[in-house]
Design a protein around this nucleic acid. Structure first.
Lengths: 202, 202
DNA sequence: CCGCACCACTGACAATTGTCACCGCCGGGT
DNA sequence: ACCCGGCGGTGACAATTGTCAGTGGTGCGG
């Protein structure tokens, strides 16, 4: 019996997957969580064989949780399950010690099998996606550039961002200008969007 | 046997729901589609009793499809199933002739029952959500203001938007200024975001 | 120890954006 | 006939944003 932890923020998706996986006779969902913060404590408590983690979660992201998990509970295999096949996500997932990376736009039928494969220690990763990730440029942004872009995502003015990050407006402007250059865009809105799409933020 | 049409863009979610609903002995998923464009043709072919529609779909939106459906196939009840409980969405859904509106952040267990209820002609709509929708201001934007905001969502410059919509840059600036005023925001990025969040676009 | 990259900041300048007053045109309602 | 609101536009002005060159300070690897 493979013991599963399921982390997914959308209640209906979470519930549906839990029922579905529960139908397989070798799988058992032993824990379900809806936030990133709960993942590690719950995993330490229930000791699942495989953790199925969404990336976009309230609290900490599934990627951060994966990092924590492979440090604190290395016998638990991590399978990332996400809406977006962003190059940065794949890169981070592998670096975080995840064994598998599955996109939600694939068929459900693949899921149970992917779980069995990561349990056997096999890597689950679409070859095309792997190639695209290797082809794509790695994250060119510095830590501060990421912070500033993330803070600009809600359309805040430079003055707002400066206040929130305790920086001078000029400094913010400089970081934004650098980020705009590195992303090959023409203003902060575009820069934030492409950085997000590439999985370069948070 | 209740015949269902299922429209949802995320393949895994769609597949999971199909399996799940198929387990109920009075339900039968007779068609699954992943785009908005397929909804009406498929419905006309398979004549489902209930159509379960996501809103955010490639091609036309679930709301537009709902409008078409209640015109061309009035005996088919529409249940909207969506990620976002935006006031504008609820308003549009009801105006489009949908009988039910269900958010994906609720438990899966509610879904089958909601389907049975819309089939009986009952309205499915969370009372709190209904109240919030009535409390919220209706869409204050004119058609052109919506167009311009939608075109500015990707961070385009005013010149870009003007070209795309065949308008003078000055006109675009005027519409944006009006939209910024009406949304109570301070620049086009914020305006586009709040308009989107309220379900005022597309 | 030196170079290098990153962080934080300043000041100047140009380009873009946002505001406002104002124009004419059309269509619907009273 | 009249008013009103939406559409499309102009021009002027102020505010914000983006670019660039340059200043220091820090920490890390060769």
């Amino acid at each position: 019996m493979i013991r599963l932890l399921l982390a997914e923020d959308q209640a209906m998706m979470r519930g549906a997957l839990a029922v579905l996986l529960g139908l397989e006779e070798d799988l058992e969902v032993v824990a379900q969580v809806g936030t990133g913060t709960e993942i590690v404590p719950t995993a330490l408590e229930v000791r699942p064989d495989v953790a199925l983690l969404d990336i976009e979660l309230p609290g900490i992201s599934g990627l951060e949780a994966a990092r924590e998990l492979s440090a604190q509970l290395p016998e638990c295999r991590v399978l990332i399950l996400t809406t977006f096949s962003r190059p940065g996500y794949v890169r981070e997932a592998m670096a975080a010690g995840a064994l598998g990376f599955l996109a939600k736009d694939g068929p459900v039928e693949d899921l149970a099998d992917a779980i069995r494969r990561v349990l056997r220690g096999e890597t689950v990763l679409d070859p095309g996606l792997a190639a695209a990730t290797l082809r794509a440029a790695p994250n060119p942004l510095t830590s501060r550039e990421r912070d500033v872009l993330a803070a600009s995502e809600d359309g805040s003015s430079i003055a707002d961002i400066a206040q929130r990050l305790f920086l001078s407006p000029s400094t913010v402007r400089n970081y934004l200008s650098a980020a705009i250059g590195k992303t090959g865009t023409r203003n902060k809105t575009e820069a934030a969007l492409t950085a997000r799409r590439n999985g370069w933020l948070a």
